[in-house]
């Protein structure tokens, strides 16, 4: 238990008779990337939404860093250290890339309710934001409107927004979707680096990336976790091959 930063037990959510997540139990250790894979519609993104608090679960508990956060709302969970990316890029379209990152830094630096101080003159915030843009290789796009970034650049910006929060855990929902080879490589290196500070629960369809990154993999199907193990264990699991991977892996 002491080794776990995030511990989810018995998490269930139904829409009528349809169980989107069914008694999910999953945890995240320190310094770990735990990948969550499964077919489309298996309940991966809904699980993320329940963890961040944007979708209310029916039963179950969520413990973050030994604190029960089950009854906290989405903003409180974000404040306490859960940072996420969205499956479909969710950015502030009319803000520049730099301003998107600055926005993400505001709460942590307790600047949100600074009413009359110019944000441009806050050198510390601007410098932190520029550092993050450099990490996600978007320095040259810092003053471009987020809506004018390419799909891959938006995915990177999403990750930058999560990084800026300096959270206890990251929940990344398909961060590599639509990235080119160099973008994927950059993400893999970045995730390997940041997991030592904040472990990552990763939803990803790019199996090469998953197998290159994950310390553990859980497979979800019809809202249930059907297997959890190391990459090798998952690769050789017959049930997993049946429901998701296929026999060519």
């Amino acid at each position: 238990m002491k080794n776990k930063i995030l511990n989810i037990k018995n998490l269930s959510k139904s829409y009528g008779a349809f169980k989107v997540t069914d008694e999910i139990a999953i945890d995240l250790n320190f310094n770990e990337i735990h990948a969550l894979i499964g077919p489309n519609g298996a309940g991966k993104s809904t699980l993320i939404k329940q963890i961040v608090g944007s979708v209310k679960h029916d039963i179950g508990s969520i413990v973050l860093d030994q604190e029960d956060i089950t009854d906290l709302n989405d903003v409180e969970r974000a404040k306490i250290g859960i940072s996420r990316t969205f499956q479909v890029s969710s950015i502030i379209p009319k803000f520049s890339a730099l301003d998107n990152i600055i926005l993400s830094l505001l709460d942590k630096s307790k600047e949100t309710f600074q009413l009359f101080k110019s944000i441009r003159k806050n050198k510390e915030l601007v410098s932190k934001a520029k550092k993050i843009l450099k990490e996600i290789e978007l320095s040259d796009k810092s003053h471009i409107l987020a809506s004018e970034l390419s799909h891959g650049e938006r995915r990177k910006l999403e990750v930058g927004l999560a990084l800026a929060m300096d959270p206890k855990v990251f929940l990344f929902d398909e961060p590599m979707a639509g990235l080119d080879e160099s973008g994927t490589k950059m993400m893999i290196n970045l995730f390997k680096k940041i997991k030592t500070n904040s472990p990552i629960l990763l939803i990803e369809h790019d199996m090469d990336a998953v197998f290159a990154l994950a310390d553990r993999v859980s497979v979800i199907n019809y809202g249930k976790i059907v297997a959890t193990g190391t990459v090798d264990q998952i690769r050789s699991n017959v049930l997993v091959r049946d429901v998701y991977l296929g026999y060519e892996i």
């Binding site: 961040v52 944007s54 989405d74 903003v75 974000a78 404040k79 940072s83 996420r84 969205f86 969710s90 950015i91 502030i92 379209p93 009319k94 803000f95 926005l103 993400s104 505001l106 709460d107 942590k108 949100t112 927004l161 800026a164 929060m165």
Partner: peptide, 13 residues
């Protein structure tokens, strides 16, 4: 522009 995103970065909207 995007209240859900603002909430997700911990700002009490």
């Amino acid at each position: 522009q995007n209240e859900e995103r603002v909430k997700s970065v911990g700002i009490e909207t």
